[in-house]
Nucleic acid binder design. Structure first.
Lengths: 187, 187, 187, 187
DNA sequence: GATGAATGAGTGTTCATTCAT
DNA sequence: TATGAATGAACACTCATTCAT
């Protein structure tokens, strides 16, 4: 039964994350979540005590999985190659699997108080992956950055918005290379 | 009296734009807009026929003013200088005057159908200002870009998110220079 | 000035009566009345203290004028001819001049308490015109009626609904003759 | 459970039809409908998506049931007897069971566009029942009518208004006989 | 576990009414 | 006289939440 329950929960979270990404917190209602899952609204309350709890769990699950996958990439080799791999993977996940998840990382004010901190924590862990590589590249001189923070912010902003204008593999490559310019050594 | 009405409308639009930026379309309710203006909900309906109409007008007014100011910047001189001026001005407006307006340019799916096209049109006119400079720089060889479209998208994403992590003049400069790297000639 | 005021009041009452007839008491709003008169809502309050007062006056004016015209028809001659003339005139007024006034005579429950009595009084005076003729015809034996009351009621119901399905002169005549059968001596 | 739901829906429709008859479309508010059913306004929205939908359904249910019962009357025998039975039954239903339903058949302009066509369709089916008998009687010469259309209209107008002035069995009979004169052969 | 039904608070919208100008 | 502006109560509709079954 635990198996079943786990699967059910995962399905709910995935659906919620999708809708959340599409419409934001206030724009999503449980009726729609339920309908997309082909169950009734009341059933959701068997798994989650409130809309807020469901939303928090959905964001957390999505963010954790996402970061897990980035952290699973090889941690050695030249910073440029590692950053390129990170960017490509992030964009791929965003474009192919969670085209609507940008909101989960953007505009934290949108979320009700209880969720904000957890989102920030997720985002922080997520940032750390990129920060490590950028800082290493800067240290070794392979990267030239104006400053680490704005570089990371722009990297993140650019990647997260990708689903809005990127579709093909070629576009993914172009965006990846464009973002790499942010750390490129200049003439 | 047309004077008075104009001012009133402007005040409403400004207030609406602020709240809209803070919470997004679904998160804003007319009660709050009215309260912030110290009038009753009903009064808003004297000026706007519906929430949608008010929202559309608010976005349009904000977007138009914003683009007006960017278009008012000097249109001559080397592309690098012109792009730097555009970035700095955009970020300044975002950070100092409309810290909550990023949503107006981001995530268009958030808005109800009737608004989407107008937002896209606004965004398009806004983009055109930057596109002209980037394309000129690319043509003259002063800029080196992977491709124009992703460059513009990242510029935009980076600028629009600025209010979330930029406060001081120094940070504005750093962000500006970071974004300029996207078009920099490489070694 | 009295002249002006009188005309203004008459215009308002006529417009109100039209709209009232079209949509009934609850369906009419002062905004629409004002707009049709090309004035503002507030102006109506210069002439009438409330919606109810305006409505009452409108009904009263229409009803009085209508009955005046019926009472002005020749009061002599054979009952059949007089009834025919009354029916024809009533239907003509209804169809040609006040196609939407049927509600003013129908369904009294629609009106708010204060108006009901006055409408009933108007209707009573109106009825009296027909009742006099029908009763005379019945007395002289020229008419054969089952009973006077239902006959009058059906006459009235038939006439008042006329605008819904009668347009041409020929149809007016057919309806008039059909209604006359209600008092016709039978084989 | 489908049973339960059906009953609930029927109860709502009946209540709505009553109120609708009493006050007309614009005069009815869902609060009152709900209160009379001893539920909350919100509950009505569980069964009907909007006021319009509820109203349409209420009219349709009432009209269909009504016509069903008229169509269930014996379809043979002399036209006079059949028409008398139809009139008596219609008036009885109106007076005894739906004293407030006259509006459902009268003044179609009162209803919002979406409802109008359906009301007209109902009314048409209802008319057909009477038309068949009147036309047969006219064909066989048992009836003498000026024209079929105005005759049907007056029959309908007279019957529908009955609840306003008819109460007793005797009055029902008198009204029935009065209306029968509309098709009576004359001297 | 899941559902249908109901609730109540909140939100968008309408409208009669008031009033300073 | 007339208007523009504002109000507040009423009304249509939404939605998170509860609960008996």
């Amino acid at each position: 039964m635990a198996r079943k329950r786990g699967e059910r929960v995962r399905a709910i979270l995935a659906t919620a994350a999708d809708l959340l990404g599409e419409r934001g917190y206030a724009g999503v209602n449980l009726e729609d979540v339920a309908e997309r899952l082909d169950v009734t609204k009341g059933s959701l309350y068997y798994y989650f005590a409130s809309k807020d709890e469901l939303v928090t769990a959905a964001i957390e699950a999505l963010g954790a999985e996402w970061t897990d996958r980035l952290e699973a990439l090889p941690a050695h080799g030249p910073p440029t190659e590692r950053l390129r791999a990170l960017l490509r993977e992030h964009i791929r996940i965003a474009v192919r699997e969670h085209p609507a998840a940008l909101r989960l990382f953007l505009v934290p004010d949108e979320w009700p108080e209880p969720q904000r901190d957890r989102i920030k924590a997720l985002r922080h862990r997520h940032d750390a992956v990129f920060r490590a590589v950028v800082e290493e590249g800067a240290r070794t001189g392979e990267f030239a950055v104006v400053a680490v923070d704005p570089t990371l912010q722009v990297l993140h902003a650019g990647m997260s918005q990708a689903p809005l204008w990127v579709r093909t593999d070629r576009e993914i490559e172009q965006l990846t290379e464009t973002l790499l310019k942010l750390v490129a050594a200049t003439a």
